[in-house]
Nucleic acid binder design. Structure first.
Lengths: 348, 348
DNA sequence: CTGTTAGCGCCTTCAG
DNA sequence: CTGAAGGCGCTAACAG
């Protein structure tokens, strides 16, 4: 029914082993026999059986990519970059590798489940993107799982996620704290003293790091933070909208709103406008990430650009062993403050 | 070194066959033995070998998703929705299925290559998203490939892509033409007579359908189209920016610009503003898709909402055989005109 | 450079 | 309900 290696071998009048060799190209084969084999492959319309190949060779051409939300460009951009680097020569039979994108939705259980599934597939590598969940128990379970993956020969790379020592994983972390600090310092320099902060979900490293950076800046300038000025939400525009209304309710005199990311900032802008405030005349707004749409906001969003595509590409290369891991297995990737129209000095 | 089924069997004092049966849950097993097996699995920290399992059973738990660009929310949203529906019971050993997301970048070769790779993996299903490339030769190659996949038992579903008769694929198409027509009619009703159109890349069904809808509307209202009013570009904001400058150069008297999608529309807005035109006072702008950021544009974008998440979810269910295919194997999904602030009557 | 020989780890009839 | 046995399709030593 289905064509197998043996069929090709018979037609090309060689042994199955030879066919395997020309297909995998990892072994010397005479040009003439190779031709013959390729011809037979073509005539028979043969397609290698991946599972069988993976079983025999004890490796697969699958690379796992864990993301919180693939519909969010923040993750989409990284996933795309990772994917663009995992192909190329080196894989089995042709060198093309397949990206298995796993949408965890930020759920600890799904994260673990996907890792097990990837382990089951004997994935060649796994890249975990975005912040981690700050639950001690979950972290321990994750670390144990990552260690097992690494021990089984799967390369594990973290992209935009804090290092997990002792797991054998390579980490490319984002300097969220530094970026957050720079951003808030920018606002303080402009003269703001009453700053609202819309944080992401609690128990997330990204959320905490950015918030800590914000507080570092406030502290450095002797600004005492009012507890009313911080609200937690999700990383989407809807949440930014609602959180902003809440902030305005708590303290209508805020002159700036710093958002956990750009999507949240867009929601904040909408809420501010609806409440009759002008940006940046009445209230300044700042985001984080610098996603593609941020420059098109009106006014354009002041934000911290994270080199998502570059980091993803690098993570992909490291995962494939095509780039050396950074010294110590960890590298911090800095963000760049992008000052645009959404921030200005407070009125008066 | 690595734990196998046999190890688990030994520890649970049953045969490998029994272990396999409890793991796959497709066969009656006494509750007590099941307990014992599960306990052994747990104690040994056993993880099923996916490739071996797939080889023996001749099916896998992988589902392919082809997208043009995963960094684009248009595809990210569909991918996310598809993914959310492919899990659940029905798969091997636990019922979790893995989504293999393939970024084709709109390249015909990559599209074909990925399909072969998925075929090699014996994917359980494949969902192709977004418009197709309109090259006769490529189409023939694609159709042949889809047919082979279907014949091999892989369920093939098209989501937002025109039907491919004779391939055994189920199609959920978007009514791009109808949406395009409605959008332009809206502008015409507002009084516009000089409308620029920024089309997507040539040779794409989506591009052509939307453009044809636009022209249908013009024709229906007896508006003769000036060849200068149409420019082709890519589906990104940069392209929209450049195309708009080109349109303005060709005919500064345009009162409306219709863009191939929302990202292009954002770029158009930026170009118009930079050229000193107000939106919608001087020029109206319309997009397509209604991506999440479109409502946050200032002014908010008039566009055609495509139910991407719903369509993706449905495609996922059909791919998993959890929802019946539409009659005739094809269903057209309509868009909804979203009238917002970026369009208004022309001045004067 | 090429053929032979064993498995890789699991599933699935077939008996019992 | 459970065990035994064969094979899924391919690769990786070994020889030659």
């Amino acid at each position: 029914m289905t064509v197998t290696l043996a069929d090709v071998a018979a037609r090309a009048q060689v042994s199955p082993a030879t066919v395997s060799r020309v297909l995998n190209g990892n072994y010397p084969v005479a040009a003439s026999t190779r031709e013959r084999v390729l011809k037979a492959v073509d005539e028979l319309d043969y397609v290698l059986n991946g599972p069988a190949s993976a079983l025999a060779a004890a490796t697969s051409d699958l690379v796992g990519i864990l993301v919180n939300d693939i519909a969010d460009p923040f993750f989409g951009i990284m996933a795309s970059a990772i994917q663009s680097e995992i192909g190329g020569p080196g894989g089995r039979a042709g060198g093309e590798r397949l990206a298995v994108v796993c949408n965890t939705g930020g759920s600890p259980e799904r994260e673990l489940t996907y890792l097990t599934l990837l382990q089951r597939q004997r994935a060649a590598a796994v890249v975990l993107t975005g912040g981690a969940i700050e639950d001690a128990q979950h972290k321990a379970a994750m670390d144990a799982k990552l260690r097992k993956l690494a021990d089984a020969g799967t390369r594990v790379v973290l992209c935009g996620r804090p290092q997990a020592p002792e797991t054998g994983a390579i980490a490319l972390t984002f300097d969220n704290r530094g970026g957050g600090q720079e951003l808030t310092e920018h606002l303080i320099r402009l003269g703001h003293r009453r700053l609202g902060y819309i944080a992401g979900p609690e128990e997330r490293t990204t959320t905490r790091d950015r918030l800590e950076g914000h507080r570092d800046a406030l502290a450095a300038h002797g600004i005492e933070e009012d507890p009313r000025w911080t609200v937690h939400g999700r990383y989407d525009r809807r949440s930014g909208y609602e959180a902003t209304l809440e902030l305005l309710r708590r303290d209508p005199s805020l002159t700036a709103v710093v958002a956990a990311n750009d999507s949240v900032a867009l929601g904040a802008c909408a809420a501010l406008r609806e409440s009759g405030r002008r940006i940046p005349d009445d209230v300044s707004v700042a985001g984080f990430d610098d996603l593609p749409f941020s420059v098109d906001a009106v006014p354009a969003l002041t934000t911290v650009r994270l080199p998502l595509a570059e980091a993803g590409a690098r993570a992909g290369r490291i995962a494939m062993g095509r780039e050396e891991a950074p010294p110590g297995g960890i590298a911090s990737v800095r963000g760049e403050l992008m000052v645009r129209g959404s921030t200005a000095g407070p009125r008066g």
